[in-house]
């Protein structure tokens, strides 16, 4: 959550919502390492949590949405970083980043919020394969007959 907090600080700075007097690119550069360390810890602990309940998690609709969004966020972060490095000299002290970077920051804020939401929803059994579900939900959740009781 703390790495997410740091990521949100960077995104909010790009959007001009926070820390307007701090150089955006220097802020992103300095916070990059602690944020990456936080994400590594998050992924390791996430894998351990998955390892505790692998059958239910792998057949959870919310877990699957969360995984897809994590990949989308990783791609967005890569593109964001590349665009920022290419254009940093032109706007680094401006109160807001250029439009393309602001879009990337908004996508990051929105998708990470949904990732947290999906993480919370995994704990609920609304779409668990154990119960009768519409065919589309069963297909998306990857329900496997005979392996739906956890």
């Amino acid at each position: 959550m703390l790495s997410l907090g740091i990521l949100f600080l960077i995104d909010m700075r790009m959007l001009g919502w926070a820390l307007p007097n701090v150089s955006a690119t220097r802020l992103a550069e300095r916070l990059n390492t602690p944020m990456l360390i936080g994400f590594v810890v998050m992924f390791i602990t996430g894998i351990l949590l998955f390892y505790a309940v692998p059958v239910r998690s792998s057949q959870s609709l919310w877990f699957r949405i969360k995984m897809v969004l994590l990949v989308v966020c990783a791609v967005n972060a890569y593109l964001f970083h590349r665009r920022m490095t290419q254009s940093m000299s032109t706007w680094e002290n401006a109160p807001r980043a250029p439009s393309e970077l602001r879009k990337g920051a908004l996508i990051s804020l929105g998708f990470w919020t949904v990732i947290v939401l999906c993480g919370r929803f995994i704990a609920y059994d609304w779409y668990d394969c154990e119960y009768p579900q519409p065919d589309m939900v069963r297909a998306l959740a990857g329900c496997i007959d005979g392996q739906t009781r956890f």
């Binding site: 959550m1 997410l4 907090g5 939401l117």
Partner: peptide
């Protein structure tokens, strides 16, 4: 669902608070 959504908001804002503190 409403409870979990607000809870997610709580977690995100706690993360932002933690980020600002750190």
């Amino acid at each position: 669902g409403a409870f979990a959504t607000i809870q997610a908001g709580h977690l995100v804002s706690l993360g932002v608070l933690g980020g600002a503190v750190l």
